[in-house]
């Protein structure tokens, strides 16, 4: 054991001959496809279960029986649900996500630009938040029990305990309305300069960062402290390993699994879970599109969004699991 500690990160290469990582990943991707299929069935069933159908939602208060019957026929809603599902699935397998039932536009068109917007917002937020959160989590673990640790912990919790819509509204009131430094709407026009881009994204990114920062920072600290309190690390400490080295060389590799999972969970929020930010800043992203689609029971559009969110989530957790495997090769024997 002492040997292993001394060898640090090197030890993992000497253990056994686990199944090749590529095979594991390939299997997970295959399972993920099945999972996407399952999710699409559930989302379809869920949307079907919701009271009201797309014809009623389109007609709203104007839904007279004749108008409903006419629209339902036009939208093929009279066909049995399973047939409509298979029809959608068949189209998707041929690379056709279908057309919106509400406005007849192609789902790919409707989703396309918004997906890019959503990914851009997610990317900016990730770039800002993840390194900072890991840094805070790791330093808090290194200096655990100190005033720094306590203050950082308290601030971290404070950030996540502010309701998002409150922070967003307050930020707009201060920076857009009162000071007029930043725009209240984050409508980025094509051909915007870097500075305009920066101004437009400042508030949404700040709001989202606050929402996801705490989970990453706190779970990083918790996972590290948990490992640090285990006896083998204590032994290393007894051998006189410096605290920073202790954390970075000994604890961090072993805490990577939970940390990667916490980061994956946080980031998966950035596509589908940002309705409030998209609403408050009028940012045309996917989360709001999905909410609209659910309100109008626009099945192909709901499905497209759900598939995108699900794929993003599965990719993130796959990466997290691979990181966990790399960090702890023994797991591959399972």
């Amino acid at each position: 054991m002492a040997e292993a500690i001394a060898a640090g990160g090197e030890r993992r290469r000497r253990i056994g001959a686990p199944p090749p990582l590529a095979a594991l990943i390939a299997r997970r991707i295959a399972i993920s496809l099945l999972l996407l299929l399952a999710v699409s069935v559930l989302v379809f069933a869920g949307t079907e279960m919701l009271p009201g159908d797309v014809a009623q939602m389109i007609l709203g208060q104007g839904a007279t029986p004749q108008a409903l019957a006419g629209l339902r026929a036009a939208l093929h809603l009279n066909e049995p649900a399973w047939l409509r599902y298979l029809h959608w699935l068949w189209g998707l397998l041929h690379g056709n996500a279908g057309h919106s039932l509400v406005n007849g536009m192609s789902v790919a068109t409707l989703v396309g630009r918004r997906l890019i917007n959503s990914l851009r917002l997610a990317l900016f937020t990730t770039v800002v938040t993840v390194p900072l959160a890991l840094l805070v989590g790791i330093t808090a673990a290194i200096w655990r029990g100190t005033t720094y640790d306590r203050v950082v912990n308290m601030l971290t919790i404070a950030t996540v305990s502010v309701p998002e819509f409150l922070f967003a509204t307050l930020a707009v009131l201060i920076f857009a309305v009162r000071l007029r430094w930043l725009p209240a709407l984050s409508l980025v026009m094509r051909g915007a300069s870097f500075l305009e881009l920066l101004r437009a994204y400042a508030l949404p990114v700040a709001t989202l960062s606050l929402a996801i920062f705490a989970q990453m920072a706190r779970m990083t600290r918790a996972a590290l402290v948990n490992i640090l309190s285990s006896s083998y690390v204590e032994m290393a400490a007894l051998k006189g390993v410096r605290p920073i080295r202790l954390v970075l060389r000994h604890a961090l590799p072993n805490a990577l699994g939970p940390v990667a999972n916490a980061v994956a969970l946080s980031l998966s929020f950035l596509l589908g879970g940002v309705v409030i930010v998209e609403t408050v800043f009028s940012y045309p992203g996917l989360a709001k599109l999905m909410v609209d689609a659910v309100s109008t029971r626009d099945m192909p559009l709901v499905q497209a969004c759900a598939m995108i969110f699900c794929t993003a989530y599965l990719l993130l957790v796959l990466v997290a699991d691979v990181i966990a495997l790399l960090a702890n090769p023994r797991l591959r024997h399972r």
Binding site: I31, L35, A38, L42, A306, R334
Partner: peptide, 29 residues
Amino acid sequence: GRTLDAALSRTMDTLISLPTLIFSLVVVA
């Protein structure tokens, strides 16, 4: 072990992939 792990993990992945809005509205309904 692996079988139960895979089953539980994929179930949880499915659950978390269900849009909260649809899930909540179905529950209310």
